[in-house]
Amino acid sequence: MEGEIRVGIGTDADLVIARAEGRAMAQRLGFRRPDPTLIATAISELARNLVMHVGHGEIIMRPIVEDRRSGVLVIVRDEGPGIADVGAALRLGHASRGGLGLGLPGARRLMDEFEIDSQPGKGTTVTMRKWRLRDDLERLREKRQQRG
């Protein structure tokens, strides 16, 4: 079973690592094209928000499995100042130039689920998921493996 991957984000070189890890995990989890690229792009975008607006933070990627579907969960979190108006940030991007910009709404369109939890003065956590369907063969195999 695929484990969790954590990438600390502090410099722009970490972005390169984060998107490569995101793409690789999506491929290992069986995502079909173009999804690994979409996931890597969303991760890149949010990782950059961390570098530009907060300075540092962390990205956690984790497989998620349900009966009929599986996918990847990406958590991007920081302990920065927080986003005052999450709704506006999601609708328009951030007010500051060159900052969040298109980032949030764009990344949201690339993923299936996208939530922001921001607390002023405490930090922001973005949780996003992308799913893929699991067919009968895959589910059968897994049940056999579980039985040993």
Binding site: P34, T37, L38, A107, R109
Partner: peptide, 14 residues
């Protein structure tokens, strides 16, 4: 521009 990257740009609306 790679095919998958082209799709990502379009969906992102860059």
């Amino acid at each position: 521009i790679q095919p998958d990257v082209a799709v990502a740009i379009v969906q992102f609306r860059l």
